[in-house]
């Protein structure tokens, strides 16, 4: 299986929770004090880290399917915080909105109990440099 996780993502504690037929990888991150911001809530930066990692995992997965292995460079990310991340596991999955030759546009959502009630979402632009 493709390694979707960077040293940072592993260090944060992110795991690949599954990849059902054709779907982008589902990532999970169990809550712990190291991820806390104000007491009882996830830190916005930790949520952003989970969202970005899920975005890259979705992109890498699609690129592997397409037989491509480009270098990925972040262009930007916009994160929307929709509700407080409570002190339990968060999940995230990315979706490719547009996969071009040089640029990819990704949409990512994170949730806790119900995928239909996201706690945060992100839009990412990624530059792809083929060898």
């Amino acid at each position: 299986m493709t390694d979707y996780l960077t040293a940072y993502a592993r260090s944060l504690g992110i795991v690949v929770a599954g990849q059902e037929g054709g779907m982008p990888p589902l990532l999970a991150l169990e809550f712990r004090h190291d991820l806390e911001g104000r007491p009882g809530a996830w830190h916005g930066g930790a949520i952003a880290g989970l969202l970005e990692t899920a975005g890259y995992a979705a992109l890498r997965s699609a690129l592997v399917e397409a037989g491509r292995a480009p270098l990925l460079k972040p262009i930007n990310v916009t994160v929307q915080y929709l509700s407080t991340g409570r002190t339990r596991t968060s999940f995230a999955r990315g979706r490719i909105v547009r996969l071009g030759r040089r640029n990819a546009n990704l949409s990512v959502e994170a949730w806790q109990d119900d995928p239909n009630r996201p706690i945060a979402s992100a839009v990412m632009n990624v530059l792809m440099i083929d060898d």
């Binding site: 040293a7 830190h43 916005g44 930066g45 930790a46």
Partner: peptide, 24 residues
Amino acid sequence: RPDLIGDEAQPVLASGPIISLLDM
């Protein structure tokens, strides 16, 4: 810190910790 890098090939901080830095 070596465990905060975003690419195995390059000893460069990942984007995630930079978001946390700016958020804080």
